[in-house]
Nucleic acid binder design. Structure first.
Lengths: 245, 245
DNA sequence: GCACGCCTTTGATTTTGATCAAGTTGCCGA
DNA sequence: TCGGCAACTTGATCAAAATCAAAGGCGTGC
């Protein structure tokens, strides 16, 4: 996330960039922050905003590379499936992340909204054109890719080597830290994923996820207000149970 | 991998780039291929080559971002450990990959050679300087990051959702396709990892890996010439057992 | 208000892979 | 050639998580 300077705010205000895009950039900088007002205007002409409901595909398997999108609000899950239907969520993207796979087309991922999600998407060719003009944009995309790579590798450690209990605690910690990044780590939050989704994220079954959540509750690591709402009395304790020390 | 043109070969030959670097670039292009002869000369002045023996750290945990390296030959494993010693290999890099985490420093990874490995490394600041001058270099690094991200996500599906049998078969397939990329998929090859490393890559124990290899042998999916040497009579059959259909 | 469906929880049982425990094999150095 | 050691294999047992099965909740529409 980048700091939007006062000068830049003015420049954008004085240009023809739609107010909605100016507001989006002010809020999270993101991919737009590396563009000049003119380029931002160009991008905004080709962008489309829409709300995606839970379970709805943002882009289909194999198509994710054809568009690029800022997540305005909400959570998107990226997943892969085996031929027999076994599924694994390989990434979660939160506002204000941006999504997409510029420059490569092979990836076979499905991206779908986990909860109500607003996205602002751009066609691939526009992004590629802007990348050629604005070197800062590619740098920004590169950083995003490295961030996702770090997250993926952390998650591989969790998938490969942690117990069910540690996995569930690790998941809760990830949600707590990502759900509202502007305000830091949350101690009370709504889970953006159903038990089935959590199971697909953790490489477990629904029943095991449920039992582990119950156990964390009985051990007073978390409180459950409703099936989706969780309170964490001590983040240190959660971290400890998650095996992150 | 990029094609090194005849003209470029001449340009480099006529410059002061050391023969060893010219040969390296001719062989795999890689990060060097995006640089002008002058820049390549600059880079070669700061590069150091060395052979790393199995089990030796290429860069220590937390330091990987301080240097950047081409793998000339061999295999490097990237791993993460939990406080109690449980370990997960989160990436394997083969020649002619290049390694490193430009622009971010947080990653806590250990990189060590799995077999005898020759690397050519450059200090971080030199790479960053060249990136500022040569936009093609950042593009190349970005592509590398996206490739690693794709591989990491494929592997997450394997770690989270495949059986021990499928995991081992998937591992053998990965090795077959990466061990000698110039000649395509190998049907007979040496495993670059010990059983313990394979276990750490697959999130299994040594014993389970051994049993599954024995089972693949008994099922005639593979032949075992020695504990490290494997022959795959039918790649389709291996793929099928790996759950990649 | 009630019934239906979906999500979640809980319980009983089974299975997969981990753990514990010996053996082999093969390599290196004496 | 022989030990010694590390890497690997095999076997017996155990435990964690999957599977199978059955109830609860909870929201929605009638």
């Amino acid at each position: 996330m980048q700091i939007v300077t006062e000068q830049r705010r003015k420049d954008i205000h004085n240009s023809d960039v739609p107010a909605v895009c100016a507001a989006c950039e002010a809020r999270h900088g993101g991919v737009c922050g590396t563009l000049s007002p003119n380029q931002l205007l160009d991008l905004s002409r080709h962008s489309t905003r829409r709300r995606v409901e839970p379970g709805r595909e943002v882009v289909g398997q194999g198509e994710i590379s054809d568009s690029y999108a800022n997540i305005i609000s909400g959570v998107v899950k990226l997943s892969k499936v085996l031929a027999d239907g076994r599924q694994q969520i390989v990434g979660l993207q939160f506002a204000p992340d941006f999504m997409g796979r510029p420059f490569t087309r092979e990836s076979a991922l499905t991206a779908e909204a986990a909860i109500d999600t607003d996205i602002c998407s751009f066609p691939r060719n526009v992004i590629e054109r802007l990348v050629a003009e604005a070197p800062g944009l590619e740098h920004r995309l590169h950083e995003q890719a490295l961030k996702e790579l770090d997250e993926a590798r952390d998650w591989m450690l969790t998938l490969g080597r942690k117990t069910a209990q540690e996995k569930v605690a690790s998941f809760l910690y990830i949600i707590a830290t990502h759900i509202d990044p502007e305000n830091g780590t949350a101690t009370e939050f709504d889970l953006p994923l159903s038990r089935a989704d959590i199971a697909d994220y953790l490489g477990l079954t629904i029943e095991t996820v449920s039992r582990q959540i119950t156990k964390l509750r009985k051990d007073n690591v978390i409180r459950i207000e409703s099936s989706r709402r969780v309170t964490v009395p001590s983040m240190d304790r959660l971290l400890h149970v998650a095996g992150i020390d």
